[in-house]
Design a protein around this nucleic acid. Structure first.
Length: 312
DNA sequence: CTCCGGCAAC
DNA sequence: GTTGCCGGAG
């Protein structure tokens, strides 16, 4: 038993003990994480509302709206009894985006009351019958409310799988990979944990060390320095990016006093790889110009290692 | 005629 | 993300 989690087509490989990887993430999550109110309830209705709201609004903004919504319509029965116009009004009044979501939510509540006799469905299959609830949301509710769902695969999870284990940029591959990682019977905590990882440590701009990422020892991106990801925007035009990166070099050097060239590279661009297309060669060119402009200077640290710092 | 992949709209 | 619509598929 190698502990590898590999697809039958061998497109990716988890070069580590799967159990250790799982344990590391869960411990990291349980030790500390953002406290969103919907993480403290297992009411499927409340979970559904949070999921629908989250599909179009930033989590921070969703908190207030979610609490007010549930305060006004605490149950599916009460929401179903409400006037459609009031629900839609609430939606727009809280800048929650497309009104259709409000309409769907109201319709779903009505379905639960009339077709399910008020009993909230629990399986992904039944949940998908609800208006506005597709595969993703159905699984999320099953997972967070009933702890019996599969892996939730959103952009955060894809990014993490892509960077950490080199899972190819393919929806099917992401889905199977995410499910290989999921500890059976623990979808609630696991999905929360891996999404938290993608949210605070492995966002478009990685914060591996700052966030104390629990997967650094196995992460391919952390090892290579290439933090490219499916959802990371393509670089701006050449000249535009050059100006932008010059700014980042200065800002970064002001913060760190002195830095080794490659370390600086990783700090200013997520896709920095010493040998890559825009790697050390590119960075040295950028630094040379900055040196000519009298903005930075090359130096040696206490151990004689070459470093770059702001020109005094 | 039902099912599925691709797309646009919300 | 989900729905709605369309063309190709079986």
């Amino acid at each position: 038993m190698t502990g590898d989690a590999e697809e039958t087509d061998g497109t990716w490989d988890l070069h580590a003990d799967l159990e250790s990887v799982r344990r590391a993430l869960i411990e990291w999550y349980e030790d500390d994480h953002r406290e969103f109110p919907w993480r403290r309830t297992d009411d499927p209705y409340a979970i559904l509302v949070s999921e629908v709201m989250s599909q179009q609004t930033q989590l921070g903004r969703v908190v207030e709206a979610w609490e007010e919504f549930l305060e006004r319509w605490p149950t599916t029965a009460e929401l179903a009894a409400a006037d459609r116009a009031d629900v839609v009004g609430f939606w727009t009044g809280h800048s929650l985006g497309y009104n259709n979501r409000a309409k769907y939510l109201h319709e779903a509540a009505t379905q639960i009351e009339t077709e399910y006799d008020g009993e909230f469905p629990e399986t992904p299959g039944e949940l998908e019958e609800l208006m506005g609830v597709g595969p993703y949301t159905a699984n999320a509710v099953a997972s967070f409310a009933f702890n019996q769902g599969d892996a939730v695969v959103d952009t955060n999870v894809k990014r993490v799988c892509y960077r950490a284990f080199g899972v190819p940029d393919d929806d099917s591959a992401f889905e199977s990979a995410a499910n290989e990682l999921l500890p059976a019977g623990h979808s609630r905590v696991w999905n929360n944990a891996i999404m938290e990882l993608g949210g605070v440590a492995c966002g478009q701009t990685p914060r591996c060390d700052e966030a104390g990422c629990p997967w650094r020892e196995w992460c391919q991106a952390y090892a290579s320095g290439d933090f490219t990801a499916p959802d990371v925007p393509t670089q701006p035009s050449f000249e535009g990016s050059r100006r932008q990166f010059r700014g980042r070099v200065i800002a970064t050097l002001r913060e760190y006093d002195e830095l080794e060239v490659d370390t600086l590279g990783h700090r200013i661009r997520v896709d920095y790889a010493p040998d890559g297309e825009d790697g050390r060669e590119w960075l040295e060119g950028l630094l040379a110009d900055l040196e000519d402009d009298g903005l930075v200077a090359f130096d040696s640290d206490d151990d004689g290692e070459p470093v770059v710092r702001l020109k005094r």
